[in-house]
Simulated scan of single mutants.
Amino acid sequence: MHPILNIVVRATRKAGNYIANSLSEHERIELTQKNIKKLISEKKAEAIIVNNIKNSYPEHSIFSEESGFLKGKKKHVCWIIVPISGSKNFEKKLPHFSISIAVRIKDRTEFACVYDPIRNELFTAQRGCGAQLNNTRIRVKEFKKIKGSIIATGFSFEKQKYCESYIKTISSLMINSADLRCTGSSALDLCYLAAGRFDGYFQLGLKFWQIAAGELIARESGAILTDFSGGTKYIESGNLVGSNSGNIKNILKHIIHYNNISLEE
Rank of each mutant, 00 (worst) to 15 (best):
A20F: 06
I151D: 08
I81E: 05
F69L: 08
E215Q: 07
I7F: 05
E42C: 08
K106Y: 11
A112V: 00
K37Y: 13
F63H: 12
E30V: 08
V140L: 08
I49C: 12
T32P: 10
R137V: 13
G200T: 03
V82K: 03
S98E: 07
I105S: 04
C129K: 07
H26E: 04
I49T: 05
A212P: 02
Y57L: 07
D179C: 06
S165C: 00
A47E: 15
L70D: 02
A11Y: 11
D107G: 05
L39C: 10
Q126H: 07
H76F: 12
Q33K: 15
V140E: 01
N259H: 02
P3C: 02
D179F: 06
S262Y: 07
F111M: 01
E264Q: 04
K74S: 15
S100E: 00
P117C: 14
F111G: 01
K14Y: 13
N239T: 13
D107E: 03
T169D: 09
A125K: 06
N52Y: 15
Q203M: 15
L204K: 05
F155I: 01
A218Y: 11
A112K: 08
S245P: 04
I261C: 06
F143Q: 06
K44S: 10
S229N: 13
S172H: 14
N51W: 09
T153R: 03
K73G: 12
K253D: 00
E265D: 02
N134H: 09
L240G: 10
Y234C: 04
T232P: 15
S262Q: 01
K14D: 11
L173D: 02
I7S: 09
G196Q: 03
I49E: 06
I235Y: 13
S98V: 15
A20M: 03
Y18M: 07
